Computed example of a mutant assay.
Amino acid sequence: MLQRVSVLAVEGMLASSITIPMEMLEAVRARLKVHQRRRAHFQMEVVTSTPHNVAALGGLGIRADATIQDVTDTSLIVVPALWRNPKPQVRRLDDTVRWIADRYRQGASIMAVGTGVCLLAESGILDGKPATTHWHYLDQFANDYPQINLQRRHLLTQSRRIYCAASVNSGADMVIHFISQMYGRDLALQIEQQFSPEVRNPFNKQVYHHDETGSGVAHADEDIAMAQSIIRQKLTEPLQLEELAETAGLSVRQFHRRFRQVTGDTPVAYQHTLRCDAARELLQNSNLGVADIGASVGFSDSAYFIRVFKKLAGQTPGDYRRKVRGKLFTVP
């Protein structure tokens, strides 16, 4: 459970790389308070390496609530993006680098934005793990940290408790992903709609997931992983539970129970989520009608498609399309 969030502030950082996550997490806390949930009572603080205020890019002054020396136990650390070449900055932050590593080994989750990922790389906690960073520094990062599995084609990566975002905009998507894992998909969708209804792709499709086996599957059940792969490959086809169960060497009842235990979803719900994710892309990027989009992703009944989409996305396909296209400027 999230109890303490430590937001790191350093000289010359991009202020938006910490203010956006802070505002989104504050929105989470506000929504949880409305429902009087105990999980709403987490502490959020700005921490610095010295007791002095720091100046972000452009001269904006950031007041510290505590120093890193004061924070010996925390649940989550948010690491900001650095401006331009990060190497000189990283060299001056030895104490901060050690603090990040110590808190991670103690059990904290780490969320780093842009070139702030270099602080994690310098600490050694990313060795052998996937990461991403700002596109301008991909080559330099690969040269400086060859022991890290750099994901050039992904804007977001996750390796257990380490989350990396390539840019400030990707950082917002990363926070949504983190909220989904910590508090559930429903709350994450509420925050996503509040802050970024124009998000181009579902956040769960953008993240490179890593597990200790290197398979990219978030669990170790090979039979269920194979079933998930089959469902993805046959996304538009009717779900054949008997065939999936037979492939896994289980009865239908055993397969259904085990699938839910491993993934948190029923096979039908899992298929619906994948279909609606595909529908979201078509709603933004095509001029197909809602019924045609539903049919193209596997829903033969448009009314049923609309009900399922609304349940998962919190809005109808038509409402979603209007929101994601609301900021599009076109020349007649």
Score class of each variant (00 low, 15 high):
Leu312Asn: 05
Val54Gln: 03
Ser300His: 05
Arg260His: 13
Lys234Asp: 08
Val97Tyr: 08
Ala55Ile: 04
Ile176Gly: 05
Asp211Cys: 09
Gln193Pro: 00
Arg325Phe: 10
Val97Gly: 01
Ser75Thr: 08
Met1Gln: 10
Ile68Tyr: 08
Ser75Leu: 08
Ile100Gly: 01
Thr72Ile: 09
Leu282Val: 03
Val79Thr: 08
Gly249Arg: 02
Thr74Lys: 08
Thr132Cys: 08
Glu246Leu: 14
Trp83Ile: 06
Ile18Met: 08
Tyr208Asp: 04
Met174Glu: 08
Val199Leu: 15
Ala81Lys: 10
Pro317Ile: 05
Gln254Asp: 12
Asn53Met: 15
Ala278Tyr: 06
Thr72Arg: 15
Ala313Trp: 13
Arg185Leu: 11
Asp95Ser: 15
Ile293Phe: 09
Val28Ile: 05
Tyr304Gln: 12
Thr74Cys: 11
Asn287Trp: 14
Gln233Tyr: 04
Ile191Gln: 07
Ile148Phe: 14
Arg153Met: 11
Ala121His: 01
Leu312Cys: 09
Ile110Met: 14
Ile77Gln: 08
Leu14Pro: 01
Asn287Asp: 12
Val7Cys: 01
Leu150Trp: 10
Ile20Gly: 07
Met44Trp: 09
His52Cys: 14
Arg307Leu: 07
Val207Arg: 02
Phe309Ala: 06
Pro332Tyr: 13
Leu282Ala: 14
Ile20Glu: 00
Ser75Lys: 09
Leu93Thr: 01
Tyr145Ser: 02
Glu237Asp: 10
Pro80Phe: 08
Phe255Met: 02
Tyr104Trp: 07
Ala245Leu: 09
Pro21Ile: 08
Ala269Leu: 01
Gly116Tyr: 05
Val28Phe: 00
Ile231Cys: 00
Arg103Glu: 12
Leu235Pro: 02
Asp65Lys: 04
Ser75Met: 10
His52Pro: 03
Trp83Phe: 15
